[in-house]
Simulated scan of single mutants.
Amino acid sequence: MYRALESVLVTGGCGFVGYNIVAKILEIESTCQISVLDRPSSLPQFPTVQYFDVDVSSKEDVMAAVRKIRPRVVFHAACTYSLSLPPETHFRINTQGTVNVLKAVQTLGITKAFIYHSSSSVIEDGVSSFVNASEDFPVLLPPEQKFPYPHSKAIAENYVLSSNRKHGILTMSIRPTGAFGEADTEMTQRLLAVARSGRANVQMGDGKNLYDFLYIGNLVHAQLLAADALLGSQALTGGDSESEEKVDGEAFQITNDETWLFWDFTRAVAKESGYPVKRNEIKVIPMWVGMLLAFFAEWAVWILSFGRRESNLTRHGVRYSSLTRTFNINKAKKRLGYRPLFSMHEGLQRTVKWFVENEQKTK
């Protein structure tokens, strides 16, 4: 299905996206030499994978590791996205970390493909809804962009795409929408905790807002299609930079191609985990009340944790849960041949099963 990768570097391979990329490569290409550049996490490490305990924001450490790894393909998934972190942390890891990794592989003369794990949020302002958004939508920068995470990702994406065809490397950016799945310690784990606490019946707003989600198995499929397209692309010199078939130097939005109501998704997670919510049990909370509750929750957690933790209920999260966010992925379908391998229901089943099995292992 995919071309042989041979030698791969996965940055952020101890995190949600990177971990799943590594797992899939091991499944489809057992002889591939896989190296991970990341700080260790609670996720298990694969015995045949070489791990480098490196902070991507350290230029020297990244360079030393890359010289040992000498990868043919790079999946750059290392990033941080917690809203509780200061802006400088986002730019140190998401932006400077990307620059460090790309500059390091540029010095080798070996790497052929660099796939950047971006975010659909680079075209969002965090407060406005949009329908059927395509890659033609402008990438937002301040003052339109008020949040450090998408700002840091947007700058990094621009650097990656503007580096295309330099030093013999083809680059691409994959922009996933809200991803869920195995090893997701953010959205999925939080929704499971909400279901188990009996609060999955709570809904903020009228619940009519549509949303595009993405199962991790389909995101990994898109990443591998990206590598396949770059490795099989036209010669590095020449070619029509405006071609409708062009893949290198391009950004691609990826969804499950299956739009859901946002709150139907949260209740689907609860149902799959054994805590179904009946329609007559749904408690609708007006948005202004939700924002007020989130305000007090944020401050309470901040004070009690001395600023070290983020509240599960945030004003940004409440606001986001009321927005309509749908994307047009025709570009990925046409140029990458992307089609989801798993439906939303299949993804939810696989996700909850993974969490249940892993929780049993730790007991």
Results as ranks from 00 to 15, higher is better:
A78H: 08
A133W: 06
V99K: 13
L108H: 03
S120D: 13
Q96G: 01
S128H: 06
F114S: 09
E124H: 00
F130L: 14
I93W: 07
N100T: 15
V139H: 04
K103L: 03
A104M: 06
A104G: 10
K146A: 06
A113H: 07
S119M: 09
E144S: 09
Y149E: 00
S134K: 06
S119A: 13
P148G: 02
K103M: 04
T107M: 15
L140A: 07
T98D: 08
P138Q: 01
V73G: 12
E135C: 12
S128C: 05
V99F: 14
Q96K: 03
Y116L: 05
L140E: 13
L108W: 02
I115Y: 10
E144L: 09
N94T: 08
F114L: 12
F137P: 00
A78Y: 11
E144D: 12
T80N: 06
A113T: 03
S121L: 11
T80Y: 12
I123W: 02
H117I: 00
S119P: 08
E88H: 13
V99Q: 08
S119C: 11
V131N: 09
L83Q: 13
C79T: 12
P87M: 07
V127K: 10
Y81A: 13
Q106V: 02
E144N: 05
V127P: 02
L108A: 03
R92N: 04
R92A: 05
N132V: 01
A113F: 01
S118G: 10
I110T: 04
P138H: 04
E124G: 00
V73F: 14
G109M: 02
L102G: 01
A113P: 08
K112T: 00
P138D: 04
S128I: 05
V127E: 13
Y81R: 11
I93T: 15
V101P: 09
L108V: 01
F75C: 04
K112H: 03
I123Y: 07
K103Y: 03
T107K: 15
V101W: 11
F147N: 07
K112W: 01
V105Y: 00
G126W: 08
V105H: 02
S128L: 04
E144R: 12
P138I: 02
K103T: 02
V101I: 14
F75Y: 13
D136A: 14
G109F: 00
R72A: 03
A78C: 09
K146F: 02
V139W: 03
L140N: 13
T98E: 08
P86R: 14
V127L: 08
E88C: 05
H90C: 02
D136Q: 14
S134Y: 03
S121T: 15
T98Q: 10
E144G: 00
F91S: 04
N132C: 06
A133H: 10
V139T: 09
P142E: 09
F147E: 10
F130Y: 14
T80I: 15
S82I: 09
Y81D: 12
R72L: 05
A77M: 04
T98I: 05
V99A: 10
L140S: 12
L141C: 01
H76R: 10
L85V: 12
S120V: 10
F130P: 11
L102W: 08
F147T: 06
P87I: 08
S134M: 05
Q145S: 07
T95D: 06
I110Y: 03
S84K: 06
L85E: 15
Y81W: 14
S128G: 05
F91E: 11
A133I: 09
R72P: 00
E124Y: 00
V139Q: 03
T111V: 05
